[in-house]
Simulated assay, not measured.
Amino acid sequence: MMLLIKNAEVYAPEYVGRKDVLVCGEKIECIADEIDRLPVACHILNGKGLKLVPGLIDQHVHVTGGGGEGGFHTRTPELQLSELISSGITTVVGLLGTDGTTRSVENLYAKTAALNEEGVTAYMLTGAYGYPSPTITGAADKDVIFIESVLGMKLAISDHRSPHVTIEELIQIASKIRVAGMLSRKPGILVLHMGDARSGLTPVIEAIERSSVPIRTFRPTHVNRNADLLEAGYEFVGKGGYIDFTCGMEGQPSPGECIVEARRRGLAKELMTVSSDGHGSWSNYAQDGTLLEIGVSKVDSMLQELQKMVKELSVPLEEALLYFTSNVAEAMDIGNRKGHIREGADADMILLDADLNLDTVIAKGQVMMEDKRIKKFGTYEHSK
């Protein structure tokens, strides 16, 4: 299949001007001021008045559902393909959360494979909150090495629901995952769910100081969930580590607000990313541990946060895009294919109108949404 996008304002994510973009199969074949006289017929999209940007990459989604902390009826629902498409997300990383018992890594793998078959790009993390970790092969490092879609491992720390691993255990886990990544040419990352406990990032800092495991092996997320953790997150970036901000943290600074403050401090832009925690349950607890309320997060918070950064926080679009596209791709070692609009890269792109509303979605060269109408739904979304 060939696809030609004409006269779009291209943000790659850096602004490169008004261009024509030719897609052949799943790849971007050519970017030029004008492309005419093609030898074969192709589908043409009129990009005039629209902004062509990389598809968003959401690296933290509970694609099989999460939660269950208020009983079985609070298990959150499985992600549907149309939710990704209507949110401009073309690449997703699935993972488990609190529930690593009724939610299995095997089921996560199957859902990851299904999303790939339905037309987007999907990866996953092995493990969950707990330790020893649920795995497919019997060991987390083997999952990373032998299962193509597994990029790293998930673990919870500094949380009342975490397994409370020791510093030595944290070092050993991180070391094994890093080596597994080296052997399989993957990022080999340890994604750390950060809770509200006072310990914050202290266990991570101690593990780094007491070992030779590189700081970029550790990937703390939800760092904007409280003021102390956020401050520690800024210090972590200053040391050369990645941090991930979560959308929709009620009562806490938004990812955009955190990034604006980080910019004011002169911190490295390339070390910060944003994710949705989509289909995970959000919950509030009393001081005695009683569950007060629970709900489910959505993946559309990514696009909403991008819009807010540009329209309300006055962050230039070409910079705001970094935290949702190229930074995430580089952090996951897939920047040669994802997160950029350039020749030879995967054809994962979205068209935004003047108000940054989603108009068109292209995933792996397929038009999944056009003129604000979804064209590709999940296999059973329209079943009777």
Results as ranks from 00 to 15, higher is better:
Ala363Leu: 02
Gly188His: 00
Leu292His: 07
Pro214Val: 15
Tyr234Phe: 15
Asn284Gln: 14
Val105Ile: 15
Thr101Ile: 14
Arg103Phe: 10
Gly66His: 07
Gly100Glu: 07
Leu95Cys: 07
Gly241Ile: 09
Thr91Ile: 11
Tyr15Cys: 00
His382Lys: 15
Val120Gly: 02
Leu84Met: 15
Phe324Met: 09
Gly200Glu: 02
Thr101Glu: 07
Gly240Phe: 01
Glu118Arg: 06
Lys269Gln: 14
Gln307Val: 13
Gly70Arg: 00
Gly241Val: 13
Leu50Thr: 06
Val237Trp: 08
Asp159Arg: 03
Asp141Tyr: 14
Glu34Thr: 13
Leu84Ala: 13
Leu155Tyr: 05
Ile85Phe: 06
Gly130Ala: 02
Pro220Asn: 10
Leu170Val: 12
Ala140Arg: 03
Ile145Gly: 01
Val63Asp: 01
Lys298Val: 10
Gly119Tyr: 01
Val191Arg: 03
Gly200Ile: 02
Val191Asp: 02
Glu168His: 11
Ser87Glu: 06
Lys311Ser: 11
Cys247Pro: 12
Asn327Ser: 13
Leu38Asn: 03
Leu183Trp: 06
Ser383Pro: 04
Ala174Asn: 03
Leu292Asn: 06
Ala363Met: 04
Ser82Gln: 14
Ala329Met: 11
Lys298Trp: 00
Lys364Gln: 14
Leu183Gln: 03
His62Ala: 13
Ile374Asp: 05
Asp58Val: 10
Gly25Tyr: 01
Ala262Phe: 12
Leu125Asp: 08
Ile334Val: 13
Ile167Ser: 01
Leu356Glu: 03
Leu84Tyr: 12
Phe72Gly: 02
Gly233Ala: 12
Ser283Met: 12
Val310Trp: 00
Lys239Leu: 15
Leu155Gln: 00
Leu50Lys: 13
Lys364Glu: 01
Gly200Lys: 00
Lys51Gly: 00
Lys176Met: 10
Gly17Glu: 08
Glu206Trp: 02
Asp277Tyr: 06
Leu96Val: 11
Gly119Glu: 01
Thr137Lys: 04
Gly70Lys: 00
Val120Phe: 14
Leu56Cys: 13
Thr135Arg: 05
Asn116Glu: 14
His279Pro: 00
His60Pro: 06
